Amino acid sequence: MSKLAPSLAAALLLTGCASMTPPHLPLDTPYKVEWIGERPLIDSSHLTVTLGADGRAYGHAGCNRWFASYQTNGQNLSFDHAGATRMACAPALMEQEDRFLQALGQVKRWEMGENGELRLWYAEGQALRMLAE
C-alpha cells in the first residue's frame, strides 16, 4: 500500500494539471460568425473566420472575401488591418461587413465558449461569437 500512495498522488497531480491547461486557439478551422457584439447577423448572410497556422486569417465578410495577418500570445489575439475584395452588395450587407472588419481590428483576446463557440473579444467587452462550420 505504501508503494501505491506516491504513484496515486503523482497521477492525481498530473490529472489536476491537465485540466488546468489552457485551450489552444483552433487553427485551420472555418468558423461561421453568429454575432457581432450584441447584434446577430442579417438573415441569410454568411461571415466566416479561419485562422491559418501560418499567421494569416481569412474568410467571407458577408459580401467580400477578407484577409489579414494575426498575432497571438496565450489568450491575446490581434489582427493587422484587414483587406477585402471590392464587390458591392446591398447597403445593409455592406454596413454589416464594415462593422465586422472594424470589429476584427479591435480584437484583443480569444476564448472557447462552453458550447464550442470561438469568441473574439474586443476592448469594449463585446465579442464576435462564432461556431465551427
Rank of each mutant, 00 (worst) to 15 (best):
A57N: 01
F79V: 05
A90G: 08
T72F: 02
T48S: 11
H81R: 13
R65H: 11
V33M: 05
R99N: 12
E124Y: 01
E124I: 01
D28T: 01
R129M: 09
S45K: 06
A123R: 13
E95W: 08
L14Q: 12
G125L: 05
L14C: 14
G59V: 03
T48I: 05
E97Q: 10
F67M: 06
A57H: 05
A88M: 12
H46Q: 11
T29C: 08
P6L: 12
T50R: 08
H24Y: 08
H46S: 10
A57D: 09
L13W: 14
M20V: 09
A82D: 04
G16I: 07
T21C: 11
A84K: 05
A127V: 01
G37I: 06
R119M: 08
M87S: 01
S7H: 13
S7M: 12
K3N: 11
P30M: 10
M87Y: 01
R39P: 07
L51I: 01
R56A: 10
G16V: 03
E95A: 15
Q102N: 14
A61W: 08
L104H: 02
L25P: 05
T15E: 13
V33Y: 02
G125S: 00
L118V: 08
E38F: 11
R129S: 12
G83F: 04
Y122P: 07
G116S: 05
D80F: 04
R39I: 12
K108Y: 04
A132E: 13
Q75L: 04
A18Y: 13
H60E: 14
R39K: 15
S19V: 15
Y70K: 10
S45G: 06
A127Y: 06
L118K: 02
Y122G: 04
G52Y: 07
